[in-house]
Design a protein around this nucleic acid. Structure first.
Lengths: 209, 209
DNA sequence: GTCCGTTCGTAGAGTCACTCTCATGAGAGA
DNA sequence: TCTCTCATGAGAGTGACTCTACGAACGGAC
């Protein structure tokens, strides 16, 4: 059975008590889940166990994450509003835009998270590439991202077909770069891989239609 | 629950009685399934019903197709041997190779299948883009295809990262072209969309690393 | 501080995709 | 014709995911 879900994520900077609890629960569930996955493997852990370990009901886990895979693939992209996305993406240079986003993300992550292994993002990303069903869910997220950026990477005079190809190339090219980063044990920053790997794609946006 | 499956498909030109029956069963199951899906929608049909309509046991459906989505996404690529693939793909011009494969496929399909709507490939492809879980399964197939062609599209001096990006761009670019073809109601042959859409990707293999 | 409406987590039952094991029967080879 | 092989079917089981109330606590209004 292959399910697809869209989940509403918390609004940024929630202030109420209720919202605070929610944010905390989300974090707790994700951490407990990751602990269990690391300990016994993704398939061997049930949602019920995760819920119990997080002291919430299974229904709550589904409400927050939609699917088991959603526990790992908390899609950054999906939570972005279309307007925010428009501000981030420059149709003239989508590769550069992506690169900037990756750099910003890495910088932000470097501040809040412990750099040692066993911590994010390593811990999660491992499953993206090792656990087939998670990889699939991640692919689906990227597919959705491609659809969303489609209008943003379409330059004047570019045919719709080429625009679609371009969007997919960009997004799944990022996937490829990320995988190489993972396979290299993350010795260099992700941005390096994206920059080097996607360089040839720049031609797509500088060639005449 | 998101499952991933690899299924062994029938060897080409099976000669025995047993094998013949098998091939026939596979066709029957797929057709009955498609009938039911068209009639009541993908989600509303259970494997049990498909099995009953095809006069086989549910276990057999799973044996042949692995998943419910597998009934629609009978991956052409997965059934190809690596050697065959190597003969088909020219590392100098992967886009051209893909184009040739698409043209051959369309030509072959044009002979055996009725051209009118409601017949393949239209009937099946509709689900690729409309049914989320099927779309996901198709993405996964393409992802696997990208991994398989990786060594075949790597030219001398191309870094591994760029090779990965190239493979993904090619395969998911094809996805994009196919979707545009679908959205256009298939008025022009698929090959046209692939040719036009992937044209800018040729630069990837003609640019210096 | 109290009351009310809304929101949100929980309980519980149900569906169905998918797995596994085992026994049987029918093709395939001698 | 006999036996070996192996695919099929039967049946039980697992667990992801859904749906429908229900109850409680939050937040605002006064």
């Amino acid at each position: 059975m292959l399910k697809m879900v869209t989940v509403t994520y918390a609004s940024p900077m929630a202030t109420g008590l209720r919202a605070r609890w929610r944010e905390n629960a989300i974090r707790t569930i994700q951490e407990r889940a990751l602990d269990l996955f690391d300990e016994r493997g993704f398939d061997a852990v049930t949602i019920e166990e995760i819920a119990a370990a997080s002291e919430v009901s299974p229904a709550t886990v589904y409400r927050y994450f939609g699917t088991k895979e959603g526990l790992l693939v908390a899609d950054q992209f999906d939570s972005l509003g279309q307007e925010e996305l428009e501000q981030l993406v420059d149709a003239r240079d989508p590769v550069g835009s992506l690169l900037r986003m990756v750099r910003d993300y890495e910088a932000a992550a470097g501040e809040t998270e412990t750099p040692r292994r066993g911590r994010s993002p390593w811990r999660r990303v491992r499953y993206f590439f090792q656990e087939p069903s998670v990889r699939m869910a991640f692919s689906a997220t990227l597919d959705r991202a491609a659809q969303r950026i489609l209008p943003l990477v379409t330059t004047d005079g570019m045919s719709e077909t080429r625009a679609r190809v371009a969007a997919n190339a960009l997004v799944f090219g990022y996937f490829a770069a990320l995988e190489q980063w993972y396979l290299d044990d993350g010795v260099r920053p992700i941005a390096d891989y994206v920059e080097e790997g996607l360089e040839p794609l720049r031609g797509i946006w500088s060639v005449k239609g």
